[in-house]
Design a protein around this nucleic acid. Structure first.
Ligand code: MN
Ligand code: MN
Ligand code: ZN
Ligand code: ZN
Lengths: 139, 139
DNA sequence: ATTCTACTTGCAAATAAATTGCAAGTAGAA
DNA sequence: TTCTACTTGCAATTTATTTGCAAGTAGAAT
């Protein structure tokens, strides 16, 4: 995902391409794990926390970023990039996060829709695994 | 799930059976959807918010309650009861929540473990679907 | 039944997360 | 270059969650 892709994605939706948005994008791109708002702010120095919140929200709306909930008491965010659907394993003890790929959720979504009275379409899903990492498991 | 089950589960882990804990349990039992701390507090009237937090945490530890994250900015909680593994569909617009059952996540978990370098066991998982309910879809 | 003590609770205060209002700044169209 | 709607930073709020502590009590021991 190049920067022109970002610019285009933003423009296409009526968003302007600004310095804070570019910086935030770059921070996310370097990260190897989903980041909290505070972490993103740390990485950009100079960009206000509120701007990080608003930018991540904008990125989410244009589909550049995914919000991840790992039961840590705050939301995390990561670039979707070209990467297919991937998810996470989290150590419930030390909070270590690993990615994994290969979530075939379509059958589950189909079954859910079949049961549902009020929904006819799924537009997104979250799937996270929780465990003990080998390090914490030995303690 | 009867109340003696609660009492036993608590006692077994060294927790005392108290009035606030019973009330909170009853509120959760009546609910047909996962509740926020504030909603639980509303339902109990007289029990302090802090006690709700601490009790839900205790219930979580003894396995009575599951925490659910629906990207709403706060955690939700629901009784596990005897009910097997079930999950939710959430309307991203009006936040309507529906249950669904039939999450066969074992293959996914196995595949995740196969890929993982730092984990050898999954002890929990979260899976939530996001969509537009039929009502919101027509707007 | 009474005593004892570790576990619980409520209240207040602190911390942390997320949102809102607004004036000043600026991207990008004209 | 001009103009204006979109953005930003800063301060203030609101909402969520945690912590400290003194007073209360469940449940074991007597
Ligand atoms: Mn990831
Ligand atoms: Mn449920
Ligand atoms: Zn760990
Ligand atoms: Zn809806």
């Amino acid at each position: 995902m190049t920067m022109t892709v970002v610019a285009d994605a933003l423009k296409k939706r009526g968003f302007r391409v600004t310095a804070p948005r570019i910086r935030i994008f770059n921070v996310l791109q370097k990260a190897s794990y989903p980041m909290s708002v505070q972490e993103v702010k740390m990485g950009t120095k100079g960009v206000d926390t509120v701007t990080v919140y608003r930018t991540l929200e904008a990125f989410k709306r244009v589909g550049l970023v995914a919000q991840v909930d790992l039961q840590l008491g705050r939301a995390l965010y990561e670039l979707k990039e070209g990467k297919s659907d991937h998810h996470h394993i989290v150590c419930v003890s030390c909070k270590k996060i690993e990615d994994f790929t290969g979530c075939d959720y379509q059958p589950i979504a189909q079954q859910a829709l079949k049961q549902s009275k009020g929904f006819t379409k799924i537009i997104n899903h979250s799937l996270e695994l929780f465990g003990l990492c080998t390090l914490c498991a030995t303690k």
